[in-house]
C-alpha cells in the first residue's frame, strides 16, 4: 500500500488557501502550510494557490525565501500544482502593474487580456470571471476522466504566454481570444482556472494530482 502523502500548500499570504485545503481534505492526504523556507518540513508535493497581484505575491514569497524553496523543490522533481497567479509566477516576467520578474522555471510572459478585437473594437470585459469549457490539446494526467462538457472557473485579467507551446495542455477561448488554460511539463502541473472552485470536475483534478504523487 502507498504511504499517505504529505502535501505542502505554499502560503503566499494573498491566496484562498483554505479553499484549496478543503478540496485536498476530501482525500486521504496530510496537509501542511509552508510559511517559510527555513521552517518547511519535508513534503511529497507542493501546491501554490492562486489569488494575488503578481509582484505582491513574488515579494511575499521572497520575504520568506519561498521563491528559492519553490525553485529548488521543482528543480528536484517534486510534483507541483500551481493555480492561477501560482502558475504565472513560474514564468520569466509579468506586465501586471509594471514589469516584474517571476521564478523563470519556465520561459514565457504574462500579459493583459486584450479587450479589443483585430479591428480595434472593444469586444471583451476584463477581468474574466466565470465558468468556461476548455479545449484539451494534449494528454495530461490532470484531466484523466474529464467529461468533455466540463466547465472550470476562471477569474483573472492576465494570461500566460509560454515560449514553448508544447507545454500547453488546454486552452480557453474568451470571445475569440484564445489563451493557455493549463500547462504540464514533467513534474509541473498548472492551471489558470481554479479547480477548487470548479465543482466536481475541479475536485477530480485534485484527485488526479494526488494519484501522481
Amino acid at each position: 500500500m502507498k504511504k499517505k502523502p504529505l502535501i505542502g500548500i505554499v502560503d503566499t499570504e494573498t491566496s484562498n488557501i483554505k479553499s484549496v485545503f478543503y478540496a485536498l481534505s476530501l482525500f486521504d492526504v496530510d496537509i501542511v502550510y509552508i510559511t517559510s523556507k527555513d521552517e518547511a518540513p519535508k513534503v511529497d508535493a507542493i501546491i501554490v494557490p492562486g489569488i494575488g497581484n503578481f509582484s505582491y505575491v513574488m515579494k511575499k514569497l521572497k520575504d520568506r525565501k519561498l521563491d528559492e524553496y519553490i525553485f529548488e523543490k521543482i528543480s528536484n522533481n517534486l510534483p507541483g500544482l500551481f493555480i492561477c497567479v501560482g502558475m504565472q509566477i513560474l514564468f520569466t516576467k509579468s506586465y501586471e502593474l509594471g514589469i516584474h520578474k517571476g521564478l523563470n522555471l519556465l520561459e514565457g510572459e504574462i500579459r493583459k487580456i486584450n479587450i479589443l478585437n483585430d479591428k480595434g473594437i472593444k469586444v471583451r470585459n476584463v477581468p474574466i470571471i466565470g465558468w468556461s469549457q476548455i479545449t484539451n490539446i494534449k494528454d495530461c494526467i490532470l484531466f484523466k476522466g474529464k467529461n468533455q462538457n466540463s466547465s472550470f472557473y476562471f477569474t483573472h485579467s492576465f494570461f500566460v504566454d509560454p515560449l514553448d507551446k508544447k507545454i500547453i495542455s488546454s486552452k480557453n477561448n474568451y470571445l475569440g481570444f484564445e489563451y493557455c488554460a493549463s500547462i504540464s511539463k514533467n513534474n509541473i502541473f498548472a492551471t489558470q482556472f481554479h479547480p477548487e472552485k470548479s465543482g466536481k470536475a475541479g475536485i477530480k483534478l485534485y484527485e488526479n494530482f494526488i494519484n501522481e504523487i
Partner: peptide, 9 residues
Amino acid sequence: LVEVYGAST
C-alpha cells in the same frame, strides 16, 4: 486591495 489581491478578487 487591488494592489495586493488583484482586480478579480
